[in-house]
């Protein structure tokens, strides 16, 4: 430490180097995320309904008019069903797997690896298999899982999967649950193991039975993990695209906003409509995420 460097450091505010180190990321995100979002909302607020015209500002017209479209309403309903089943299913299954493994079990590493591996595979790779498995034919002509049910004598379980007019989107959530529940399992397992053993011990000493220990000591500890999982699953769910395209294609029967957006932009060549849908997707994600971010920031401050 020479006197000179010390004086330079004294002149420079302590926070400046940090800001400089982060600045490339800030610039990149500003351009690639906020630039794109800005572009998107500019188009969404215009009447640029084909690729040639320039488009002029029309305010919220597109955002309002889209609610008159049957397809839009249907896709929103689908997205809600999908989100509820997928988020709920992955949370419950992931929690259950973690619960089973929590206290350690023979071959835990192997189990964990198998539950986690679906996360490593893209739906470009597994889409066809899921299409086969969830084939909608029943009875004599059943293939895929329906054929398996038939073989096992569980014919009553046969159904139309994603072609079911009412609950098809619930079937669509199955591959997504398959893919993400291992990750939720890992999160919960980390959560379980993060509960200090002394706390459990203390509760037992105080006369709690195992269930009470679970209810009053462990569950509260899992709350942040649950919330984090909820957020990650929720935003995956609202943006779901690859999975549905690779399993069902772009059919109305499994339409969701992200697919509608794709057809609006690339098939119908209606940039304004596509941007409007993208806008709604961003907003719905924001509704999910912003309160969480605020809550998280507060929690950290409290600490």
């Amino acid at each position: 430490m020479t006197a000179k460097t010390a004086s330079v450091r004294a002149r420079m505010p302590r926070w400046l180097p940090g800001l400089l180190l982060v600045s490339p990321s800030i610039v990149a995100i500003a351009v690639f995320v906020y630039g794109m979002l800005g572009w998107n909302f500019k188009v969404a607020l215009s009447d640029q309904h084909d690729e040639v015209s320039e488009g002029s500002f029309v305010g919220l017209e597109n955002f309002i008019n889209i609610w008159q479209e049957t397809r839009w309403i249907l896709s929103v309903q689908h997205a809600i069903v999908f989100t509820v089943v997928f988020v709920g299913g992955a949370l419950v299954l992931g929690w259950f797997l973690a619960f089973l493994m929590e206290k350690g079990i023979k071959g835990e590493g192997g189990f964990r690896a198998i539950y986690l591996f679906p996360m490593a595979i893209s739906f470009i790779a597994t889409g066809v298999v899921w299409r086969w498995l969830m084939n909608s034919a029943t009875g004599e002509r059943a293939v895929g899982l329906n054929a398996l049910f038939r073989f096992l004598g569980l014919d009553f379980l046969q159904w139309q999967w994603f072609r079911d007019p009412d609950w098809g989107m619930a079937a669509m959530a199955i591959p997504a649950i398959w893919q993400m529940s291992g990750y939720v399992m890992a999160l919960f397992l980390a959560g379980f193991r993060g509960v200090p053993e002394e706390l459990r011990e203390a509760a037992r000493v105080d006369g709690c039975n195992e269930w009470q220990v679970y209810r009053w000591v462990i569950l509260p500890h899992l709350r942040p993990v649950t919330l984090a999982a909820l957020i990650i699953l929720g935003h995956i769910s609202l943006k779901v695209f690859d999975l549905i395209v690779s399993v069902s294609g772009k059919q109305i029967i499994t339409d969701v906003p992200a697919i509608f957006m794709w057809t609006a932009v690339y098939d119908a060549h209606d940039p304004a409509k596509g941007a409007t849908i993208a806008g709604y997707i961003v907003l719905s994600v924001a509704i999910f995420v912003v309160p969480y971010l605020i809550w998280n920031a507060r929690r950290e401050k409290r600490k």
Partner: peptide
């Protein structure tokens, strides 16, 4: 930035 729907942009 995690949350933008890439297909649209």
């Amino acid at each position: 930035g995690m949350f933008i729907p890439y297909q649209g942009v």
